[in-house]
Each structure stands twice: as C-alpha cells, then as structure tokens.
Design a binder for these strands. Sequence first.
DNA 1: TGTTTATTAAACCATAAGGTTATTTAACTA
DNA 2: TAGTTAAATAACCTTATGGTTTAATAAACA
Lengths: 113, 113
Amino acid sequence: MTPDRLDHIFSALADPTRRAILARLALGTTSVTELAEPFAMSGPAVTKHLKVLERAGLVIRGREAQWRPCSLDAAPLKEATDWLEHYRRFWEGSFDRLEEYLQDVQKNGEEDV
Amino acid sequence: MTPDRLDHIFSALADPTRRAILARLALGTTSVTELAEPFAMSGPAVTKHLKVLERAGLVIRGREAQWRPCSLDAAPLKEATDWLEHYRRFWEGSFDRLEEYLQDVQKNGEEDV
DNA sequence: TGTTTATTAAACCATAAGGTTATTTAACTA
DNA sequence: TAGTTAAATAACCTTATGGTTTAATAAACA
C-alpha cells in the first residue's frame, strides 16, 4: 500500500457528508440524485464528494440509462483499519510501549507509515 | 462522539507527515525539534502539524524547561476504529448487506455517522 | 546581563476543498 | 423532433491546508 492511498482514504472519511453517503451505500446501490436527497446541498456538490470517494476507491460507479448507480467498495476501509491496528495496544493499555513497538517493527518493518 | 470529532481525527490521519509523527511518538515522548528532524521541512511547519494532531486529541503536550514534550494519546484512534467496525462485514464478504445493516441500525441507532 | 536554544507567532503565498449557479451532455419519452 | 430527467462540467467564490521566512517569547547558561 502506498502512503498516498492512505491519504486519500482518510481524507475521504474526514467529511461528514461523505461518511453519510457511505452509510447510505451500505444499504445498497443507488443513484446520485437519491444520494443527494437528504443533504441541504446542490447536486454538483454531491458529485464532487462522490469523486473524492471514488478516488479513495470507496465508491464504484456503473451506468444504467441516464443514471450512474453508485455502490460501496469497503476494501479501502480494511486498509485503514489495518493501519490503525498498529496502534491498538496504545488504547488497550497495560504494556511496555517501546518494547512492543520494537517487536512490531522487527516483524513488519515500517512500510505502512 | 460528535461528528466533527471524527472529522478532526480522520483529517489528522490524512497526511503522511502526521502519520510519521504518530509512528515516532509510539516510541515515546519527545521534543518538537527531534520530531522535526527526519523531515525536509521547517520547524514551524512541524508545529502546525502538531496543532492538527492536538486538535484531534492524538497528541498531548507538556512543559519541561524550554521544551514542549509531545506524547501520543491513542484514544481517538479507538474512536476511528470503532467507526470503521460498522463496515467490517463489507470487506469480510458473505453476508446479506441490507439485513445486517438494518440489524445494526436497530441495535445502535445511527448516531455515529 | 547578554547569548544561545527551543518553540511559537505573524505574515505571507500557492493550492486544495467545499460550496454555489449556469451550462452541457446523454439518454429516455411523448 | 422536441422535451424531460440525470448527472457532469465550467466558472467562480470563500476558506482551509501546507508550506515558507522573519520575528517574538521563554527558559537555560556563561
């Protein structure tokens, strides 16, 4: 995984509208218009959010007549989770931070910064 | 958890310099100068990154003579992970998306969008 | 007291983000 | 063919980001 993939994934998740879009897509594929409906926001604004999600690989777009159905691809969320897992021991407490970190580095290297 | 907390957490994580700073802080508390050392970047730039991390609650700063020791607080990373957990079933495959989503909403509500 | 060291603040710059409205494109429909 | 619907593009605006350099602050040190 290249670092800028994580950049794109995390920055896609940093906006509440985009997180809400993902929550809607978790229900299933839908059109841009239906995605835009709950938001006090113009269509083009939603199109832009979808482009950000697409760049992060979180949304896949199809073609069906004049609609562009959007669906969720959660694979990048797994990448984000995998990165966060490196830090789990820090919020679970009771450990020797330095020692565990060094063990981890020895095992995995630091390619996933 | 308020939505804008997630905004701050995810946008803090969206920059490779900041992720590298977190990786360094996983080794233990250190000074701003030492944090800045690996980067081809001015001191003030690093100070700004630290402010972003601080706003997200990921970095805690102390005071020791003329140094401001920085240390990691991973609690917000748990919040991010908790949010991502909602989507785990989507990357683990083999499920009825709609059904599981509705179960989840029924259990937890949607306060964590 | 004067100087060095660590860090922040201020002012500035270029580009990106998030929004708008108006226009275009593409496909269905009467 | 003309009109409607769905979505994207273009042009624009405002604010945020990520960086710079120069100056200010705060504490240690000679």
